[in-house]
Nucleic acid binder design. Structure first.
Length: 403
DNA sequence: CCTCCACAGGAACTGATGGCGT
DNA sequence: ACGCCATCAGTTCCTGTGGAGG
């Protein structure tokens, strides 16, 4: 007897293993494969630079460049963990410490994150607040010295660090790069990873000179290479023959368009795979890739919108209301919204600042216009559909009546 | 050619928060 | 109990500016 109940049908399909995906964790870029394709050159260089660790001496600090999705982090992590295994039993243990500067909002947070990974677990040993930055720094050095570890600090997206430093503690990063001079036992190696090849200009030259003792640039993947990488993952992630060649080509092409972003390609494939699976499609088709791309874009927008604080949201609504208008007009619209929602309004100065921040995220675009004796303004426009905004904000209780 | 608009955007500061060390 | 330290959102005060209109 055939079961027509939709719920039962879904449950049946789910349990009957009618799945085209067999190992989905392979479809995350951060999944570390046995072999990293097309990165032999870089693997060799990174290994070369870190070789002194095996010889019990301190390697040079290292700076790694490359666009997003070129496998920088993957390569560095792979090499380091291999080295770590080698020296595991020797009396020169390596402590691998990884942080992403983008995830930390302050320099303080970054240092604390280092400390946590070095084994300063409890609040007592390393409080999350209250200490001066140099205080935290000294504690870090103390642990390294006490355990005489060879610490390797990996700072991903180090370009964001330049921002964090500018506010406080300019000297700390400098001290970090020269920490070895203060350490009697143990050592400290810094590895910086950056997407931005021009970020150097924003960093203290003293820091730079010691950080970039060695530099390695990752080249972009070609579309052809991306295709091979995808193929390699498809082999383990999907059931044989469930991904159309056309879909594969499109996926590689879309990711290659930018600068050969393998991460995007793999994400795209994963989302498309999940989409196809949910629709009970036999194969992943070109159309799935296209829709996956669109879906990812929308999801990104929605999460970005929801993560904004109230006044930012109000301003986005104001921009939506007063399409293509100047800061002054947006400010007026915003004041109206504040009245309607009974919120205290903030100054125009702050509004310019927030608008600038939102612009940076890409949700709105601004363009400076000179209107002669009518002064200078910035005119803002939405880059997303108003529907997307309405949908994203509909759960916000304060905003319900102004939408 | 000069004026003067309507802001942009930098700098320095404030007040609150949260937790340190003594 | 007290001063100190870092951080964040926001404020106050400020100088700078391209070109339409006189």
């Amino acid at each position: 007897m055939i079961n027509h109940d939709p719920v039962d049908k879904l449950l049946d399909d789910a349990t009957n293993g009618r799945s085209i995906l067999k190992k989905r964790d392979v479809l995350h870029f951060t999944f570390i494969p046995d072999v990293i394709l097309h990165r032999d050159n870089e693997l060799a260089k990174v290994t070369q630079a870190l070789l002194p660790i095996l010889k019990k001496s301190r390697p040079s600090n290292l700076l790694v460049y490359g666009k997003p999705g070129t496998g920088k982090t993957l390569v560095v992590k792979t090499v380091l963990s291999k080295i770590q295994k080698r020296v595991e039993k020797s009396d020169f243990p390596i402590k691998l410490v990884y942080t992403n500067a983008k995830d930390e909002t302050t320099l303080y947070g970054l240092l604390v994150s280092f400390g946590r990974q070095l084994g300063l677990k409890t609040q007592k040993e390393l409080p999350t607040t209250g200490l001066s930055i140099s205080g935290v720094f000294n504690r870090l050095l103390d642990v390294i010295q006490k355990n005489s570890t060879n610490a390797v600090f990996v700072i991903d997206e180090i370009d964001y660090l330049a921002e964090l430093i500018s506010k406080t503690g300019k000297d700390i990063l400098y001290n970090l790069t020269r920490a070895n001079e203060r350490l009697k036992t143990g050592s400290l190696t810094l590895i910086g990873i950056s997407n931005d090849l021009t970020f150097k200009e924003r960093l203290d030259p003293r820091v730079l000179s010691s950080l970039s003792e060695e530099e390695i640039v990752f080249t972009n993947y070609t579309v052809e290479q991306i295709k091979e990488i995808l193929l390699d993952r498809i082999k383990t992630a999907f059931i044989l023959g469930t991904v159309d060649i056309a879909a594969l080509n499109l996926c590689a092409a879309m990711a290659g368009q930018e600068h050969g972003d393998a991460r995007r390609a793999i994400d795209l494939l994963r989302v498309a795979g999940e989409l196809a699976e949910r629709e009970q499609s036999e194969t992943v088709k070109e159309d799935h890739i296209r829709r996956a791309s669109q879906k990812m874009e929308e999801d990104k927008e929605t999460t970005a919108l929801n993560s904004y604080p109230l006044h930012e949201k109000l301003l986005i609504v104001a921009v939506m209301r007063a399409k293509g208008s100047s800061t002054g007009e947006i400010f007026q619209a915003y004041k109206g919204l504040c009245k309607a929602t009974r919120q205290r309004e903030i100054t125009q100065r702050r509004v310019t600042q927030i608008l600038g921040d939102i612009e940076l995220s890409g949700l709105i675009t601004g363009k400076i216009v000179h209107q002669g004796m009518h002064g200078r303004t910035k005119k803002y426009n939405l880059t997303v559909q108003p529907d997307v905004i309405k949908k994203a904000f509909k759960d916000d209780l304060v905003l319900t009546d102004v939408l």
